[in-house]
Design a protein around this nucleic acid. Structure first.
Lengths: 204, 204
DNA sequence: GTCTATATCCAGATAGAC
DNA sequence: GTCTATCTGGATATAGAC
């Protein structure tokens, strides 16, 4: 199982191998161009095992989706404990996401660079999942508290995380050559310049 | 043929019916969940005709992609003639894109809300197509001329069009209830506040 | 639980009449 | 050029041995 936050256990169990194989193939080729046989082959297990564990291709994708969203939620927990104030917290989170984009490419790509509604029947769209609604709520509350300018929450969310996700997309699509961290400070400075209460300043 | 800028001819020719049917089905169900038979049925033509005109399903998608990008490029022509200065031009363009999102949903969705690399073999990724590289170049030049703050071009592009595209995505995914025009002024004000040379001001 | 071999289905593509 | 009928490949899913 592809862990974003925890180390992978050593003699990797069968279901982890299946998930890892699926993740890599889905991201590299696109979900619809991957067959169960491809996954079976790469994972080094039989078709029977795949159907036993996950019930088929979509089951693998759904398991990956659920798992990675859970890890994202845990990441937010960590970040929210580490930092205080909406700005520092968002900075921290975005910086980590940019890092993970380089170090855990497949996982970030599966979450941010795929259209899940096209292969997960009845899946909640990404922006209604727990981590995303949570971030949306945090930003809305920060606006109410006066930590950010009094703008529409949806606009603030778009500016802050939309631009972050957009950069991740561009990087994963090969449109940006440098690691995203190279742009992190600049991006955040501009975003907060647009959204900060008070005038454009940049306290760390 | 689904025209973004011109009216549709009245006794709609056969190849237009095919393209329109394909566009609607691709957007509503997702490319991979549409069969040539579905398109044939909805367009009211035979399979043979589809293969004659477009060579198959992918041919339809490619034709749509090429055509819509061309129309987007023409739209930029129009906008660039109508307005002067990077800010007014971007405002104008974004406003029109937001309008089209309401009035020409399928076309906007096909261009901005689909992963073309997943079904068009060897297709240029969206951000390397003519209209997008053109916009990127315009922004980079505006920065050089001093019309915008001296930031990395890729960041400025992300802020301006990334946030615009992101809002379109959210709207098309049903995450935003109001027409995007309701947010247009607010979005642009914040974006330019972050990017304008001189201090945050808002000349119409 | 894991495997191989096999069945079933359906999408993409073609052939050939009109 | 347009149509119907048909072929073929490949994917999902299952059956049944081990």
């Amino acid at each position: 199982m592809p862990y974003l936050l925890k180390p992978v256990p050593d003699p990797e169990p069968l279901d982890c191998r299946i998930l890892t194989a699926g993740l890599e193939l889905f991201v590299d080729r696109g979900y619809h161009k991957v067959s169960v046989h491809d996954i079976q082959k790469r994972a080094g297990v039989s078709i029977g095992s795949i159907y036993n564990h996950f019930g088929g291709k979509e089951g693998i994708a759904r398991s990956l989706y659920d798992h990675l969203l859970l890890e994202l939620d845990e990441l937010i927990d960590i970040v929210w404990q580490e930092s205080q104030g909406i700005r520092a917290r968002c900075d921290n989170l975005i910086r980590r996401l940019f890092e993970f984009t380089e170090t855990h490419r497949h996982m970030i790509a599966f979450v941010f660079n795929a259209k899940h509604t096209e292969f997960l029947s009845e899946s909640v769209p990404l922006n209604r999942t727990a981590p995303f609604t949570r971030l949306a709520a945090e930003i809305a509350e920060a606006i109410e508290r006066g930590e950010l300018r009094a703008v529409s929450p949806v606009i603030a969310q778009t500016l802050i995380f939309g631009s972050c996700v957009r950069l991740i997309n561009l990087r994963l699509d090969g449109a940006i050559d440098q690691p995203l961290l190279a742009y992190c400070d600049e991006l955040l400075e501009i975003v907060w310049r647009g959204l900060d209460e008070g005038q454009a300043s940049s306290p760390a």
